[in-house]
């Protein structure tokens, strides 16, 4: 059960942004490209310097070490990065319960990262991010390179994770129909703040 609260957040000359996501709630976020959606997510994950406060339940970001914060507030970037040759090394040899719902068998751990398609990378990156059992998810276009069946699988998985754990989810999407499907509330990002969005 975790609520994410953003107060007067300013980053890279943008903002102030204020935002509240209740526990177990998913909020969709859209906006013109270049509006700063990714920058906003980076600031919430404390990857960029910023002013203002971000809070998970009653814990302000600044009160716990940054690595711990990022394990709780997980940012899934639009383009995932992989540093080892084999997929399994990125999961530190641990069992991952999200592989099957995303359409992978256990043998995927032995696959070479260099031979993954962009869609496979995107789904595996989600599974990898969930391994930290985050209490808040910041998803940056998590289905951009997926086909319809896999889009549905990802949406189902995130919805299931959200209801099981009460995690707060902020979902950036370019697709109005997807924003409508996944979000209980919808926001539109401008350089100076949010507007209500009606996809």
């Amino acid at each position: 059960m975790s609520r994410l609260q953003v107060n007067e957040l300013r980053t890279h000359g943008r903002g102030p942004y204020s935002l509240y996501i209740a526990d177990g709630e998913c909020v969709s976020l859209r906006g013109p490209s270049g509006a700063g959606k990714s920058l906003l997510l980076r600031a919430i994950a404390d990857l960029d310097p910023h002013q203002g406060q971000v809070q998970l339940d009653d814990t302000p970001c600044t009160q716990i070490p940054a690595p711990q914060w990022r394990r709780r507030v997980s940012l899934l970037p639009a383009e995932s990065q992989w540093w080892a040759d084999e997929v399994g090394a990125h999961f530190a040899g641990r069992e991952c319960p999200w592989l099957r719902p995303l359409g992978f068998g256990p043998e995927v751990m032995g696959w070479q990262v260099s031979r993954l398609s962009s869609g496979e990378k995107q789904r595996l990156a989600l599974a990898r991010a969930l391994m930290n059992r985050p209490q808040a998810l910041l998803l940056d276009e998590p289905t951009a390179s997926l086909d319809a069946a896999n889009v549905a699988a990802v949406e189902r998985l995130v919805a299931g994770y959200r209801t099981d754990t009460g995690a707060a989810v902020l979902w950036v999407s370019h697709d109005a129909a997807q924003a409508e499907r996944v979000g209980a509330r919808h926001l539109w990002l401008t350089a100076t703040g949010f507007e209500e969005d009606r996809p």
Partner: peptide, 11 residues
């Protein structure tokens, strides 16, 4: 990008 990916995962 790789360094920041590791940071995002809590490194």
């Amino acid at each position: 990008a790789v360094i920041e990916q590791r940071l995002m995962l809590g490194a």
